Amino acid sequence: MGLPHIDFNKVDWSRYAYTQYATSETYLCNSIMVFDSLERLGSRAERILFHPLEWDLIVQDEGDRISQLLLMAKDKYRVELRPIAIEGIRVEPEGGPSAKASWDTSVAKLAAFGVVQYERVIHLDNDLTVLQNMDELFFLPETTIAMPRAYWLLPHTDILTSLLAVIQPSYREYTALREDGSAVASGQVGNLKENRFDMEILNGRYGDVAMVLPHKQYGLITGEFRKKDHRYYLGEDAEWNPDKVLAEAKLVHFSDWPLPKPWVMWPQKQLAELQPQCDKNPGTPQESGCRDREVWKELYDDFRRRRKDICKLLSYPAPVQA
């Protein structure tokens, strides 16, 4: 997609980049899927992947999936690999002292503020499907950050979602955000539902000053197809049409709690209870008007097919040592 006032053929694309971060093999595969979509959709911006310092490009054996996937990102998708210290924030478990605690590493996406050689970067979560080219976002009016609103949390809160963030890198902001992250990690800042600490940090600093992106293009979640009340997505008077909604969206984020993410197969009983309901005679042999369910399942099936194809077992050789 172009903009009338900008000739994309004359843009210096070395000034712009998409960023991802991955801290496990699972999320590394997801990041490569995002880069694959950007490539397929004709994005011209550069690509950066932040990953743990201990990862390397030396394939030890056929089971060394992380090194294989890193090589794929570098060689096939022209991704610049950026090792960083991944700082986790301890998430206290539910279920009492015997329950196992986990770590939230979402603050790693704040590293995107530190790539100051770029005029602007777009950070995307990697549990989503990119549907259309989004390079136009690099040319927004001047702003430190732009994000869509987490419309699914309305009317209880009007916070912004960090599933997509258009960022103007800055050492000053990067330093300040790292300090904010340290405050969250030490418990000086309250918890946010679903342990999205990066959202908490970004909203705390920019919630009142960020540019708000239209969520219909840049913030659609799969959970919207499970609802019957779409007023917070559409507005009061608009009519819901799942095909039209999907055609307008630049991305769709997989969010259907308590159903798992698309790389985890659904428990069948849970799926039957939580999948989108048909409009007429739901749950009966005569049910009809099931387009919401069809679109929703197609999104998950597409993700799984692409994941199997893109992240299949590789046979990259170990790099020749000098």
Rank of each mutant, 00 (worst) to 15 (best):
L38S: 03
K109I: 02
S37P: 00
T129A: 14
R90W: 08
L140D: 07
E119A: 13
F113I: 01
D61L: 04
V59L: 08
I58S: 13
V59T: 06
E119C: 07
N126G: 01
M72W: 02
T26N: 10
W13A: 04
K76Q: 13
A85K: 14
G96H: 05
I122E: 08
K100D: 07
A101N: 06
G96L: 07
A99M: 08
G114M: 06
V121S: 08
S98W: 12
I89M: 04
R47Q: 11
E142V: 12
D12E: 11
L71N: 09
D36M: 03
C29F: 04
T105P: 06
V116N: 07
H51Q: 07
G95V: 11
I48D: 06
Q20R: 07
H123S: 15
L110F: 01
K10E: 15
Y118L: 07
L38N: 02
A73F: 02
G63P: 00
L124A: 03
E136R: 15
L28A: 04
Y77C: 06
I66Y: 02
A22R: 01
G95K: 10
A17C: 11
Q20G: 00
V91F: 04
D12R: 12
R47W: 12
N126E: 00
L57W: 05
R78K: 14
R65F: 11
F138C: 05
R78D: 14
E62W: 09
V11M: 12
Y27R: 02
I84V: 15
A73D: 03
